[in-house]
Amino acid sequence: MTDDVLDLEALRRAARTAGFDWADSDLEPLLPLATPMARALRTLEATPVDAAEPAIVYRVV
């Protein structure tokens, strides 16, 4: 899901994989947003985190 340029078919596949059966008219407006998002996710994949544990979401201090 992190190709830098995503087309409608890629969005259809991603939506179906996530359990959503959206119409093309729902997905087409995503196209201008999808490429920057894919780039952000690619950057995230490339960010070194070493052995860092994920931040604890619910931390009671």
Binding site: M1, T2, L6, L11, A14, A15, T17, A18, F20, W22, D26, L27, P29, L30, L33, A34, M37, A38, L41, L44, E45, T47, V49, A52, E53, P54, A55, V57
Partner: peptide, 25 residues
């Protein structure tokens, strides 16, 4: 807003956890 929400389908479980790792750093 609907488009921003729908964009979330591009985020995998691995992305989410990795983001939480980055967050700790």
């Amino acid at each position: 807003v609907a488009s921003r929400l729908r964009l979330g389908v591009l985020v995998s479980g691995v992305h989410y956890v990795r983001a939480q790792q980055v967050r700790g750093r």
